[in-house]
Nucleic acid binder design. Structure first.
Lengths: 103, 103
DNA sequence: GCAACATATCGAATAAAATAGATGTGTGGT
DNA sequence: ACCACACATCTATTTTATTCGATATGTTGC
């Protein structure tokens, strides 16, 4: 089983590759099929498929098959989860501040 | 110069490594010096230093030197920026939805 | 069933990131 | 000035990620 750190890391992997950010930006104007995405980014088809898989596994994107096409769009629940996670990871209680080191 | 995608990717690199998430969690209880962090994570000193550099470069963490010690803590402005960025990256206008592929 | 198409998966090459040990740099104490 | 300590940087190695070409899978139309 995956630990919580690995799981959280996976969510943010969606946002730490340049091509995936370009793909996410394309999805901002709504659902797109792989062929649409491929037309607007300078990577090969198998590379696109690989990135879409990572985006789906992060939970940020969901896919839907319709005939021969696969449509991708943001998963609202995945996006909300990522935002909650970011909040949780960056909460800092102010106790123990200004404490000397190694004491 | 760095493009906006590379810059955004750099911010989220802070959150996509297991050890960095462990380090961020330690910072939640307040500022810590490198030696405190090192005591509570199973990595070498040079590796810790490497990760702290990435966290600082992402803007999420700031460092402060006091005598021989370097203290690390969350940068509130960096955290806020990351949250804004996540919002911006995941905004989806609903226009163009339900449009057929390749048309 | 077969051909054409859309996408996924596989396998291999390359690139990038993580890690550790050795060494360098700056600080404090004597 | 010297030594000890805290941390950063350098170098090499290992691990992981990205990429592409080839092939496999699943769908549609004939």
């Amino acid at each position: 089983m995956e630990n919580k750190y690995q799981n959280s890391a996976k969510v943010f992997k969606a946002f730490c590759d340049e091509n995936r950010l370009i793909l996410l930006e394309m999805l901002q104007t709504g659902e797109k099929c792989a062929c649409d995405l491929l037309e607007n980014i300078n990577i090969g088809q198998s590379t696109l498929s690989h990135h879409m898989k990572i985006l789906c596994e992060s939970g940020i994107v969901k896919s839907r098959r319709d005939g021969k096409w696969t449509y991708y769009s943001f998963s609202e629940t995945g996006v909300d989860y990522a935002k909650q996670l970011l909040d949780a990871l960056t909460i800092s209680s102010k106790k123990n501040m200004n404490r000397k080191c190694c004491e």
